[in-house]
Design a protein around this nucleic acid. Structure first.
Lengths: 199, 199
DNA sequence: TATCTAATTTAACAACTATCTAATTTAACA
DNA sequence: TGTTAAATTAGATAGTTGTTAAATTAGATA
């Protein structure tokens, strides 16, 4: 049932501390201690809230040494808001199928099929449409405006799939990122390849 | 602080029973008893949840004889979702002012200034832009596709302002509604007058 | 390998929430 | 006025949530 997902999304956002965490993370990744200090709570509280945000897929975590860095999962934050509207108004629209809705449903299906419950990428889709959805899903977890070294990009991709070389190449090929003397950076979404504009 | 408003909005939606209430209400207004039966809870529970939804401005209530009919407040359901995104990403956007954002902020200001905390309309704006925002805010609480008698329209408007005759005329004049032998009905939003398209 | 230190996680608890039953209120109508 | 049909309130309980103090983990260092 889709209802639980929507409820969990709202539960995750139904607390001022968690909203503040997201606001802070919108500026870039931060670890637990820093978050705790900025929000005037103990690190334990951050752990607690981070767990809730992670359950709702609103943040990602990256481990470096024994520090865990949190960052926003833009994709889910944006899409769950729409999911709420869809859920409430679905019956009213009476089966009329907006193009965006269709695309969103397609995205959901592809992501559900190609990612494990833990968020790992099972395999790289062959079909272009599906591949683009997967790639967009991945880059949505990168920060815009930030510079990444090649190693950082590889490590990031390895969180999802072992074949980082192929995926990194796809990032560039489909204009999700650009590379300038060893430094990688996200392109603005207008430049991304999207299947809507392809067919 | 805007934060509390956003948190309350999400608290209101962070419960399965309340979401189900909204889904049912999206099909049209219902009274407490009917909601209780459809959701397999007692009327007391409905009262409890209705209070939370009302506090978050997600539903409206209309009294007829001694039964109270609940209906969706489309306007707030849609706008609060956007408010969440704005709140989280505001700092990242770094002051860049999308046209939609500007309009949304304008709407917020006008509604805050012209409506009381209880949702009553203090006065009808003279300036066209503001008047249209107020009118749109009002009709957003009418159901699309439903036929209203003149008395129903008057009663509806009287919930907000005593001068129902003027406001009813404005509804027609600016194409929010149309009238056909005594029956009023909402026009599709594409037909509504909007200040963006006016200047 | 043993120890120190800086990070996260666990466990406990107080505060809050959803739901029910039972009692009360409100408003229409006979 | 008394009856009825709706909503609300009050009180109780089981379950959930936000916070912290204490415990635990995992690098770093000697």
């Amino acid at each position: 049932m889709q209802l639980d997902k929507v409820v969990n999304y709202h539960k995750a956002l139904a607390d001022p501390t968690r909203i503040k965490m997201l606001i802070l993370l919108a500026d870039g990744e931060l670890n637990g201690q820093v978050l705790a200090e900025k929000l005037c709570v103990t690190p334990a509280t951050i752990t607690h809230h981070a767990a809730k945000l992670r359950e709702a897929s609103l943040i990602n975590e990256r481990r470096d040494k024994n520090t865990i860095y949190f960052s926003l999962n833009d994709y889910f934050i944006k899409n769950n808001a729409n999911a709420t509207q869809d859920l409430i108004y679905r019956s009213v629209k009476g089966g009329i199928d907006m193009p965006q809705d269709h695309h969103r449903r397609m995205q959901e299906t592809v992501i559900k099929n190609f990612f494990t419950a833990e968020g790992k990428l099972k395999s790289i889709p062959i079909q272009l449409k599906k591949k683009l959805i997967v790639l967009e899903h991945l880059v949505s977890n990168l920060e815009k405006g930030r510079n990444y070294s090649e190693k950082e990009i590889n490590d990031f991709i390895k969180n999802y799939h072992e074949d980082f070389a192929t995926i990194r190449r796809e990032f560039i090929m489909h204009q999700y990122m650009f590379r300038e003397n060893q430094i990688y950076e996200l392109n603005p979404p207008e430049m991304w390849a999207r299947w809507e504009t392809l067919s």
